[in-house]
Design a protein around this nucleic acid. Structure first.
Lengths: 183, 183
DNA sequence: GAATACATGTAAAATGTTACATGATTTT
DNA sequence: AAAATCATGTAACATTTTACATGTATTC
């Protein structure tokens, strides 16, 4: 359901293919929303049946044909209604690392510490990515679109990713220290 | 898949019913792992077919019968192997609020601020819950089990929830301030 | 008298992942 | 010569949610 609105959100800026939608998601919303290429294609098909989008095939030579999707008024209305509707509850999270940690009292101390150090590296790297590359990409998009409100909101979501990763690194450091102190 | 291990993790402490597993999850791992009652029942059935658990029906009068699940050696081995296997990648997240915010440049300033304030309240409340009730429940469980390593790990996962909620509140405050400054 | 807790489960639908299939062009 | 990019899609599978169905005992 939400994926439909994410796709409508992108198509509301400009018409594009499923392949391009995947690329845009990967560099902008992957921080808080993602989808596999195959799911994007099947979802676009359903959206077309609903009348939210239309598509046209662009024949190319030497390249596979492209199916370009365009948002329809019904899609724009659905998008706007969704945007205006508040999120009234907390979203349940799933964190595999935490689930394992919860049940890990039987795991050897060194094994556990190695797992946490591995994760620390990944989150540290991700924090750095949000501060540099992601920031640059978003600024570039904002310059093209030229809407300062878009720029502000896009950077707010990027900053969330940065804060989240930094918090996770701090928590991992604390947790590593706690485990190191055990017998 | 991960739900199977979560259930094995609980059953490794003591045998119990699907109903009880749901209750334990709700007060301990809901912060980072959750499941609906119906999914727990269907998953337990699959686990029994695999030989990870066995079940026995306890007949009750005046109450519906209870099906009590017990972990089997195959289940204990699978659990231990899963615990020892490191999480080698970052888990992709989904945050509905962020997705909406990303596309919300067309949303009226007051509507948007109201949505963010609503979320701030929810996250603030959740942070308080982790610091008080959740902390008390975990300490109580730890006292019963009497294993200090369990107590340490359980509190580490609880603390993650606390840090996450506090970070979210800070980010919401910053974002609200940014949006208020716009024309 | 109504709502909640106890306790189980099935069926259907929605959502998401993995694997398969094709084939030219461009980069390493 | 191999791998990645471009570009689409289907099929099968796995996961998750929602809705339905049942019925007693206890609490408000």
């Amino acid at each position: 359901m939400s994926l439909e609105f994410a796709l409508l959100g992108f198509l509301n800026y400009q018409s594009m293919t499923g392949y391009e939608l995947k690329q845009f998601m990967d560099v902008s919303t992957s921080n808080f929303w993602h989808a596999k290429q195959s799911q994007i294609y099947t979802t676009l098909k359903k959206m077309e049946e609903k009348g939210f989008v239309t598509s046209e095939v662009e024949v190319q030579d030497g390249r596979p044909d492209r199916r370009i999707y365009t948002i329809m008024p019904a899609g724009q209305n659905a998008l706007q209604a969704w945007l205006e509707q508040a999120v009234t509850d907390l979203q349940p999270k799933k964190e595999l690392l935490l689930l394992k940690l919860f049940f890990s009292s039987s795991v050897d101390k060194q094994t556990l510490l190695a797992q946490l150090h591995l994760q620390r590296g990944l989150h540290q790297q991700q924090a750095a990515l949000y501060k540099t590359e992601t920031k640059a990409i978003i600024e570039q998009f904002a310059a093209i679109v030229g809407n300062s409100q878009d720029a502000l909101l896009w950077d707010a979501t990027r900053h969330y990713g940065e804060l989240f990763e930094e918090m996770t690194v701090r928590w991992l450091d604390e947790t590593i220290a706690l485990i190191e102190q055990t017998e």
